[in-house]
């Protein structure tokens, strides 16, 4: 005997008997509230290591035609380097800074979302937190990708009517 009281199957009440799914005014409401970011197929992200030079990272932004790079140390996300960082922290002093590591000017500890978060969370990261690109992490904390306004709108478009 382990002390656990014996349950009587005849007296068992399934708590889910009273569960009623949340009613939504439209499919768009449901998708924002319930569908996971994982369903959006976030874009694979371009990544650099924290000791990549600012010159190397800037050239990568230009060649790949992307507006942000995730900065990683091993498999851990430590920052994000964006076009905005180039404008705000680098542009007017580029010659002097170009050979410094990108870790010196990246935006550290960026706002992130997880693959299991709802689509509305990604939109909150963009519209409320004010970030154009939001890194997406797997539930184990490793990097999965990045979500952009274009990706969110493309995911929502089939549900507009």
């Amino acid at each position: 005997m382990n002390g656990t009281p014996q349950s009587d199957p005849d007296k068992f009440e399934d708590p889910l008997n009273n569960y009623e799914p949340t009613p939504y005014a439209s499919e768009l409401h449901r998708v924002l509230a319930e569908e996971a970011i994982d369903d959006m197929q976030s874009t694979p992200s371009a990544q650099v290591t924290v000791d990549t030079s600012i010159r190397g990272a800037t050239e990568m932004l230009s060649e790949l035609k992307v507006s942000s790079l995730l900065v990683v140390k091993g498999e851990t996300l430590v920052g994000i380097f964006t076009e905005r960082d180039v404008l705000e922290k680098v542009a007017e002093n580029y010659a002097a800074l170009a050979d410094q590591p990108v870790g010196e000017v990246m935006s550290a500890d960026p706002t992130v979302v997880y693959e299991t978060d709802p689509v509305g969370m990604a939109l909150a990261g963009i519209a409320v937190a004010g970030h154009r690109h939001v890194p997406v992490l797997k539930v184990d904390g490793t990097v999965m990708g990045i979500v952009s306004p274009k990706r969110v709108l493309r995911h929502l478009s089939p549900y507009l009517d």
Binding site: D117, G120, M121, L123, A127
Partner: peptide, 14 residues
């Protein structure tokens, strides 16, 4: 979009 769907977006915490 966020303003039109406040219950689904603005309440989210990051």
């Amino acid at each position: 979009l966020a303003e039109r769907f406040p219950q689904q977006v603005l309440v989210q915490r990051l």
